[in-house]
């Protein structure tokens, strides 16, 4: 084997990325746009004093996640703990990153999923790309993200989107394809247009499945928070990252616990919104 020259795959990719970074006219505005989104969320959360935001989050969980008393009490205690440990600011930043990544994933992912559901050719083409996006180690996305978007929150969001978007696309596609033929036929037989069929029948029928995908996406985005902290995306992840660097078990555990609490809240909330209110 030693006689065979290895393919210069790494060089090619470097060259390609180098070439791409020239396209400042694309990445400049994109960076700005994502930056605005993050700041928007940050600003929004900043409006409320911590105690009010805390109460709002507890209220939302109670309202959307099936009015479970136990869960609500847990969320209340968890958020109080985060506040008490001094991670409130970090948590807000993390929420801003996760929500930005989530919103971008939904805005791109749902239409992609719809497109995929309409044509088997498109499905066949996109599926391997999604597999690629999900199986490539998440760290790898950090490198081009830095190349295109520099250091900070924005590349963190970009890397999160790439890593977290596939479930939304997949589940949207799946949800629409799973609608029983007869129901589609019923909608067509009454003379629905393509859009009427989509918005009046397919999307409502697929809603639960799509929400399961969005739930997955949010969870994956949250899991990227720690990884993205390596390229300067601030928040709870940074606290964990620094603790690892300093071999600070206690601090790392605190920050990690905060992430877990946020994860549980986001998970129950998105699941709750997805579940049909009518049983």
């Amino acid at each position: 084997m030693s006689n065979i020259t290895p393919l210069p795959l790494a060089d090619w990719i470097d060259a390609f990325v180098e070439w791409l970074t020239q396209a400042e006219f694309i990445f400049g505005p994109l960076t700005d746009f994502i930056g605005y989104l993050i700041s928007g969320f940050e600003w929004f959360f900043g409006i409320f004093p911590p105690w009010l935001l805390l109460l709002i989050m507890v209220g939302l969980t109670f309202w959307f996640a099936g009015r479970k008393i136990g869960l609500t009490v847990f969320v209340l205690l968890g958020l109080l703990l985060i506040w008490n440990l001094g991670y409130w600011e970090d948590m807000v930043l993390t929420l801003a990153i996760v929500l930005t990544a989530g919103v971008i994933s939904i805005v791109i992912g749902v239409p992609m999923g719809i497109w995929m559901s309409r044509s088997s050719a498109v499905e066949g083409a996109i599926k391997p790309v999604l597999d690629f996006m999900q199986t490539m180690p998440a760290f790898v996305y950090l490198i081009p993200a830095v190349a295109f978007f520099g250091i900070g929150m924005v590349p963190g969001v970009v890397a999160s989107v790439i890593f977290a978007m596939p479930p939304t696309i997949r589940f949207t596609n799946l949800g629409i394809r799973q609608v029983p033929t007869e129901i589609i036929e019923a909608s067509e037989a009454f003379g629905s247009t393509g859009n009427q069929k989509l918005f009046k029948v397919q999307l409502p029928m697929a809603k639960t499945t799509i929400m399961a995908g969005i739930n997955q996406t949010i969870m994956l985005a949250l899991s990227m928070v720690v990884i993205a902290s390596m390229i300067g995306a601030d928040g709870l992840g940074t606290a964990v990252y620094f603790a690892v660097g300093r071999n600070d078990v206690g601090g790392g555990f605190e920050a990690g616990l905060a992430i877990v609490i946020v994860a549980i809240i986001l998970d129950r909330l998105t699941q709750g919104i997805g579940a049909s209110k009518r049983k």
Partner: peptide
């Protein structure tokens, strides 16, 4: 034209009812 016919001239009843559950 087909949609017009389906809206105005013919409607359909299905074996498994084809109702919209939501």
């Amino acid at each position: 034209g087909l949609r017009k016919i389906r809206r105005e001239k013919m409607s359909m009843v299905f074996q498994q009812f084809g109702l919209f559950p939501f």
